[in-house]
């Protein structure tokens, strides 16, 4: 029987859902292989039955917590889809200030218009997550790999080596050799994207999160030597994972 798949959004730009729709070539094969039962933020996630829940976005409001818990309860497999769901992503930058301060800055005199805003959290700080598809937005091939793995009942492959591996294989000229103001985080960022950004001459911004034994101090030395100050280097490394965990590791520096 085809597995029933629900796709859900929490706080996000919905760019990951868009990546799925963008798979023009594979979309027909995909709907042959799986039964898409929910594929729109507007659909009530509590309704319908599904085996696999793909959830994009971070948890940023109290009201999202019971929704996510309900999705978790109903799904056999829950996948955090994209940088926001996996590591709080760009939304996590709000954690560099208190929720109250953020509300005051954005809404000024009327902070109560969004009264249930919390710190931004990746899904796994609220519910158990089975698998991750990283990146901002997700990579289509990785999405397909995940679906195929789930169809086989096999744990999906999640590279734990840095972007440099893929970048060297592609024989890109290293951005640090080009020395044109790009401060690439490829050496400490999880691969799986095919070194997409450095391949186009843009620095890796770390959207897939750190590899497990990232030598962050050595990375900062390298960025400083390439021409930015240490504070700026640390800020850049935080761009996609300044979640509550990231903040704790940051020795309180803002």
């Amino acid at each position: 029987m085809k597995p029933r798949v629900g796709i859900f959004s929490l706080s996000s730009c919905e760019g990951c859902q868009l990546q799925i729709l963008n798979m023009e070539e594979e979309l027909l094969d995909l709907v042959q292989a799986i039964d898409l039962v929910s594929f729109r933020e507007a659909m009530d996630p509590i309704s319908g039955e599904y085996d696999i829940a793909l959830v994009e976005g971070a948890v940023t409001r109290e009201s999202e917590i019971p929704v996510l818990q309900e999705i978790r309860r109903k799904a056999d497999v829950l996948v955090a889809m994209g940088a926001c769901a996996a590591a709080a992503g760009v939304i996590g930058l709000r954690n560099l200030r208190s929720p109250e301060e953020n509300l005051r800055r954005v809404y000024g005199e009327h902070p109560d218009v969004a009264d249930d805003v919390t710190v931004a959290r990746p899904l796994d700080e609220v519910v158990e997550v089975d698998y991750y598809i990283r990146s901002c937005p997700i990579d289509r091939d990785e999405f397909l790999h995940l679906i195929k793995s789930l169809l086989m009942g096999k744990e999906p492959y999640d590279p734990n080596y840095p972007v440099c591996v893929e970048c060297r294989i592609d024989e890109n000229v290293c951005l640090y050799d080009l020395n044109d103001g790009e401060f690439c985080q490829g050496p400490v960022t999880r691969a799986g994207c095919g070194a997409l950004c450095p391949g186009f001459g843009s620095a890796c911004m770390g959207c897939r999160g750190l590899v497990d034994d990232a030598n962050v101090e050595s990375m900062i030395d390298i960025m400083v030597e390439a021409g930015i100050d240490e504070r700026e280097a640390r800020r850049r490394l935080e761009l996609f994972h300044a979640g509550p965990e990231g903040k704790k590791n940051d020795n309180g520096e803002d």
Binding site: P162, C164, V165, G186, P187, V211, N215, S218, M219
Partner: peptide
């Protein structure tokens, strides 16, 4: 100092 990044191997 080593980044464990595998560049040397590759």
């Amino acid at each position: 100092r080593c980044l464990g990044c595998g560049r040397c191997n590759l």
